[in-house]
Nucleic acid binder design. Structure first.
Length: 154
DNA sequence: GCCAACGTTGGC
DNA sequence: GCCAACGTTGGC
């Protein structure tokens, strides 16, 4: 099983929105970057991800979610009324994928600046200069450090 | 709102 | 296939 970090703008989908889905799952969609899409295609059911709030007042890790299924074509790419519409994508030749997630827990918010302050995390893909990917892999050692050292105090 | 960094497009 | 121009992301 692998670990990931998924960004979301809480104005659109927050960790509370994922939690409110209760036993149900939430579709993660709208990714329009090939590198991020390829990471989504590597995801498998049972993988876990930090749910990260971006482009908002309180930026950082806000919770933990589980991947519940393999990637599948993102329906919004075919919807001309959607901001995520892609004229070059067709159902026969889809370009973009969604993945379903489920809420595991809401944590205290671990700010981006706090992540940056720990030398143990300096290799994190999220923290790389200029990194903008909405989905990035998290190394097991990084995952454990965050889980055990930063999230225990929630 | 600014701007650095990155990805994509398209002319050649 | 190069690369300049443009658009987007996302932290500050």
């Amino acid at each position: 099983m692998r670990y990931w970090l998924m960004k979301s703008e809480p104005d659109e989908v927050s960790i509370d929105d994922v939690a409110a889905a209760r036993n149900k799952t939430v579709a993660w969609f709208g990714v329009r970057n090939y590198q991020a899409r390829n990471f989504m295609r590597e995801m498998r059911p049972g993988d876990q991800a930090f749910f990260y709030h971006s482009s908002c007042a309180n930026i950082g890790i806000a919770g933990v979610v589980e991947i519940v299924g393999d990637a599948y074509p993102d329906a919004t790419q075919f919807d001309a009324a959607s901001p995520y519409f892609d004229a070059k994508a067709t159902p026969a030749t889809p370009r973009w994928d969604s993945v379903d997630i489920r809420h595991l827990r809401t944590t205290r918010l671990v700010p981006l600046a706090e992540l940056r302050s720990h030398p143990e995390l300096e290799g994190m893909r999220l923290l790389a200069k200029g990194s903008r990917l909405s989905v990035t892999p998290v190394e097991p050692a990084e995952w454990r450090f965050i889980e055990q050292r930063l999230l225990q105090e929630s």
